[in-house]
Design a protein around this nucleic acid. Structure first.
Lengths: 219, 219, 219, 219
DNA sequence: CATGAATGAGAGTTCATTCAT
DNA sequence: AATGAATGAACTCTCATTCAT
């Protein structure tokens, strides 16, 4: 009786706090699956276990829901990511590896991995969100990778490459993998096995970057 | 039957023949820009310079239009691509390079470069199209790259790698570039300059694949 | 029981008594401004400084609120008006003038002046209220004016006219003025100056009613 | 056969021309009856014998429909009215009488007689329409009455009165009658008999305006 | 063949009403 | 007594689809 009572009481209040993120999570899932336009608010509400009208207690419109979903989820992971960066290795080669692997584990492999798919699909329809995403998210991410790359070049561990372009080349397979997992994977699950794909990825790109013979960072 | 008859209404005849592909081209452009659901048939018709009803003379439904757009355009380029393959180098290193560069020039850089974006966005909504695309297009493309890669490995020019996974890693930056050109490019045109991106790409991946020192295939 | 008790929560007690009429006043104001259908209960509650749910402690529904607003406010003024009538002049000419002017001052010029506008707008949607208003309010008002008019005719002060029709003609400019003040006045405040309008009104209608030369009742 | 054929053929074209005014007429009727907010577009469409979507072929939104209904109907009658004015008497007394009676016959007694009711009810919700109506319709109407009144005063036929205020007083009973016919009439048909009301009206106001004894214009 | 007016099912959004707190 | 989070029916508006011309 006591335990039951203790958890049953503050129902309204607790939900009030939790609702927006529950709704956003449900919405993100559907936006990733079906795209923005094809997602009906009925479905979002049903998946979150509320009625359609409840969505409008927390979001002004479908468009506002979309923006909130992208920005709120992204900002949460950004701060988490920056905290992680501080704890990373000083060795540039390990550093770059940990950054790329960290991106995969923190973003690519989680439900946030669907956001790149959504942003790719909706960039034209939501230019403001796309601009925000490009400037506040992608650019910052690229800067982190670029600084690791530059550090390695300075110390003679990486070959001299065009840093900005190479950063994009390095990120592309990771982003592609997370996009693929959220779109074509249903057709071809074999093509989306990170445990096979990632080693091959690290193998090629580190061999492609390093100056000397195999440095032993590859697993 | 006579000359007269054959040329009586050349414009009319030609247009009649050309209509479906004109419509498909207009539709593809809009599907790439806005996505399937957000594209109105009004717009497709307007862009093609016909009335909305005319679309239904050539396509049974919006869905049928979508499928036709993907399949027709893709099949056209597939046969063209296979013809090209026959004329390629026998040297595996050059061969791989020509395949990847050929993909870019024939697909990535043209309006077909939007198709990967569309397929990524709509895979969940059109599983049959996605399956077709995966099996008849992607798999065949991968097979071509894989055979070049295997040839190079057999001849000791490429390192021994996991071929299927590495094929995907190799394709990812190219697909990513073509996707990016059709979505985020409006926000960040600087990030989509193939003339900068492609050399950095070839630099890293060929250095990452080759066994010996630089073979000189990189421009 | 003691003084202490009686005054223990004076604010609370007084508010509890005052609530329904505060709510009704807020509702009337909004019904007059925007009409019944366009008035949201949120707004009524906000204007009265309570929550939306509180409205339902005092009124069963929006419709019940509407009826209460009309009937309560109207009945209050009806009894007040009848008290006033007893104190009026015996001279039919002055009597009629005081009735008409009294209507303006007691109703037309106050917030009750909005009720005719609301009743006009909502008569079709609330036929019962309209019937009540017509029978219990308008008819009684007309009867008062009619008896003054008949008295004047009997005494040879007013010309012989069709009494029921003339009563309506006499009331029309007054009602029109109070309606106008609550609708078009925002566009054209100059058209709603009672200090100009009322003298012109009394000038024309008394000159139109009186048998002899100017009797001097006009200011 | 021939007659049938002659009228049956151009169905689409003829409707295309006629539709907007059919729709506007249906909409006006309902706006007058129930008010803007309480009128559902379903009903408008049903009354006009079309589907809901058809409304949107001719009007961008419910609001646009409202504006069009007011403005189109009003403008049509304004030009008609101005044509009539040219043909009126030169005698100021008859002129004024014909103007007032003409207003009744052309506007008050027709379906346009509902427009004052609607404008009164919706002035707050559609301030732009109210401004238009006030400036382009009411003011012009007042100017016509004012000029007849001034003419009569100049020629010594009417007493010297405050012209602008008296114009409003003169119009008020007419407008009130048309408003009443469209709102309270259902409750009290006896109060809305123009054949009784109008003579009493003309009796009082002309007696109220004229300088001398009865001039004989009153029927 | 081609048109475009017409349709109506379905989507986003609002708001009177309820009820656990 | 008072709150305000939640509901869902009802509304406005959209757009794929049809069909008479």
């Amino acid at each position: 009786m006591s335990e039951q009572h203790a958890t049953a009481r503050p129902r309204h209040r607790r939900r009030k706090q939790a609702r927006p993120s529950e709704l956003a999570a449900a919405a993100l899932g559907l936006f990733v699956e079906k795209g923005y336009a094809a997602t009906r608010l009925d479905e979002v509400a049903a998946r979150a276990g509320v009625s359609k009208g409840t969505l409008y207690l927390y979001f002004d419109s479908k468009e506002a829901l979309f923006k909130a979903v992208i920005q709120d989820r992204v900002e949460a992971v950004m701060s988490e990511g920056e905290a992680l960066l501080a704890s990373l290795q000083d060795d540039p080669v390990r550093l770059l590896r940990e950054i790329l692997m960290g991106w995969w584990e923190l973003i690519g492999a989680t439900d946030l991995g669907g956001i790149p798919k959504v942003m790719i699909a909706e960039a034209h329809n939501f230019p403001e969100v796309a601009r925000y995403f490009n400037e506040d998210v992608i650019s910052r991410g690229r800067a982190v990778v670029a600084s690791a790359l530059r550090l390695g070049i300075e110390r003679g561990l990486f070959r001299v490459v065009d840093v900005p372009a190479t950063v994009q080349v390095l990120m592309a397979p990771l982003i592609m993998l997370s996009v693929w997992r959220n779109s074509m994977a249903v057709c071809d699950p074999a093509a989306c096995r990170p445990e096979v794909y990632l080693p091959a990825y690290f193998d090629v790109v580190f061999k492609g970057l390093l100056t000397g013979p195999d440095s032993g960072v590859l697993p």
